[in-house]
Amino acid sequence: MSIGHTLLGLLEAGPRHGYDLKRAFDEKFGHDRPLAYGQVYSTMSRLLRNGLVEVDGIESGGGPERKRYAITTAGVTDVESWLAQPEKPEPYLQSTLYTKVVIALLTGRSAADLLDTQRAEHLRLMRILTTRKRKGDLADQLVCDHALFHLEADLRWLELAAARLDQLAKEVRR
């Protein structure tokens, strides 16, 4: 994920302090991997240098000074072109799951067993995501659905592979 673009996108909704930015990021995108403070400030200084954000105000209360950042017109253009640029589809051809299925077949093991064991493991995570989605807000629902559909895709492929067991086994042993 491009952290710079994501932080810029968050700033487009309104100016924020570095700390607020980190909080907003973690809340929406960083459930499993929260952003480090160092990363927020190094990203902000890069964006400042490139003229994509500006310092909108400095608060000097009792503690250390807090800079408030705002997006610039160049920043808005940058977010816009990032959103307009399609992401490269990932080919997934080298995945460990694929390798395991082929090795199982090559060695005469049961792909169906592999499927059942992997499904159980996927389902364990899918149940956690479903519970989080059920109890969460719209952002939780979106991020969990995204993960759920990808996990389901893995399993659908594994199911198809297991269903083709005989055919595949003949081919890889040839």
């Binding site: 059942d116 149940r127 759920l148 559909f149 389901e152 399993l155």
Partner: peptide, 21 residues
């Protein structure tokens, strides 16, 4: 599987035999 993710646990049936995962 997305539907099964609403369950508490699953059993798998294959060739008429069941497997409690």
């Amino acid at each position: 599987t997305r539907v099964a993710a609403w369950s508490d646990r699953e059993i798998v049936v294959r060739d008429g035999r069941s497997r409690d995962m």
